[in-house]
Every structure is written in structure tokens, then in C-alpha cells.
Amino acid sequence: MSFQPDSLIPQVGVITDVRIDTPDIKTFRVVTPDGKKAFDHRPGQCAMLSVPGVGEAMFSITSSPTNTEYMEFSIKKCGCVTDWLHQAEVGQQITIRGPYGNPFPVDDVFAGRDLLFIAGGVGLAPLRSVINYCRHYRDRYGKIDIVYGSRSKADLLDYDEILTDWETDSGVNVHLTIDREEVGWSGHVGFVPSFVKELGFATDKTVVLCGPPVMIKFTLEELIAMGFDKTSVYTTLELRMKCGIGKCGRCNVGSKYVCKDGPVFRCDELDELPDEY
């Protein structure tokens, strides 16, 4: 008997690489058992990973769609599934399904624009996909600025890639900050919202913002005060999800389902939603 594929039935994925990024974040490389990328995706989309017997959870795909060989997921250790994944070794099989949600409008709205990426902590994970997509198609976009902050130097995600690839790109400016002074750090110290204000960007940029809810809130307020319009600021939301296809009801906010109508929203669209995210 053969049935139509069902979104809830996953395929097997193999962890082929585990990179330790920070004390609580690891980046996992996942392919199918025959060594291929599990499915195509767009920047900003998510996938459901599961450890059979432990559970399933939604993660943003941190690798760029331009990587046709594998997918990467930067995962912070903070619950059952993530605890288990953090103990997994190379060669471990898990399950994967997706892609879910709407991507960032990289090919239309973003085209030809100066881009400003602002990330806090593990909030860089979903942005890395779109940053590397835009770096890959560099000539389609204007100037790229990346503001990234974390608690400490050790908590900066993708630090090696930032130093060796992003900072050396022409037309890409990276601005790093950490919350508190520490030995061996000569860069900026302070929170992301005030750093953004200090840097004082031109307001014709399109902004992509992701981080902890409180960081998003204050950064957005700072951007508005600087003269940015909410219609040019994009963010990506995180809510508890089970199905990924707008049916299980968990990520319902107002008439939207974050898994299928999001996770990418323009900030003026968020104003239309009840404050429950």
C-alpha cells in the first residue's frame, strides 16, 4: 500500500558534523542517509527536527539555500530535544521535515537595497541564512551592515566565519558588541539597541532584526526614533509549534499562524496582531 506523502511524516536525516559555537550553542550539519540535502528552502524558513522517543521541535535553517549540499542548524541547549541533540555524535540519525513558513523577501523587496542586519545572541541563527544568501548574490544588493551582539565573546555565534568571511567581504561592514567588558576584547561593549543608535545608520536601509523578545522590542523602538519606518523592518518570530502547517493551533496569534504565515513578519504587520508573541 502506498500513500500520498503527509507533512507530519518525516524523513531520516544524518548528523554529519557538529561544531561547538558557544558554551550552549552547537551547529549541526544534516543530510539524508544517501548524503544529499533533505529539501530545498528559502532564507528564513524552518524545519522540524526530531529525536524519536524524545520529541520534535522547530528550528530555523541557518545555512543558506545557496548551499546545495547540506543544511545547518545552530541550536541552543534549552530543553529535552536540544539537550539530547547536544549529546549527539557525528553519524547519529534523526528525522527532518519541512521546509516551513514564509522566507524573507530576498529576491524582490530586498533587491537593490542597502541591508542592515541586527542580531542578538542565538538570533543570528535565522539571519545567517539570509546574510550568506545576500553575500552569495552580492551584486544584487547595496551595502550590507551587520550588527551583532551577545553576552560575551565566547557567546558570539559563527565567530570564525564572521572574522574570516564576513569582515573581509567588500561592501560588508560587521559591527560586533558584547554586554560587558572582558579581557581580550577590544571591540564595542554595550547592548545592541544603544549600539545601533551610536552607529547611526541612514534610514533608507531595509532592516532584518532577530534576537530575544526584549532586544527586538528596544531595538525596534530605537530604529523608529532614528526615523526608520516599520514597513522596512523585518523580523522572525518564535512560538511553540507542533505541526508546522497551521493546523495544530499552537502558534496561532490573531488570525495568523506563525508556522505558515510567518515566521518572517514585517514590523508593521506585527502591529496588526495581538501582543501574544
Binding site: 526530531s50 534549552c78 536540544t82 507542533k242
Partner: peptide
């Protein structure tokens, strides 16, 4: 959606849930 270890393998099942329950939207953050 939950997983159940049968002793011989894992069965993933779904069951009714309620938005009235306190953990319905509870997540890591």
C-alpha cells in the same frame, strides 16, 4: 504530537489538546 516508547520502538501519535491549558504555548524562552 508526542512520542511513545513501546518497548519495541517508538510510536509518534497526536492527541487532542486545549488552548485552555497552561503549557499549551509554553516554550524554552
Amino acid at each position: 504530537i508526542k512520542d511513545f516508547d513501546t518497548g519495541h520502538g517508538v510510536v509518534r501519535y497526536r492527541c487532542w489538546d486545549s488552548c485552555m491549558y497552561s503549557d499549551f504555548t509554553k516554550m524554552a524562552h
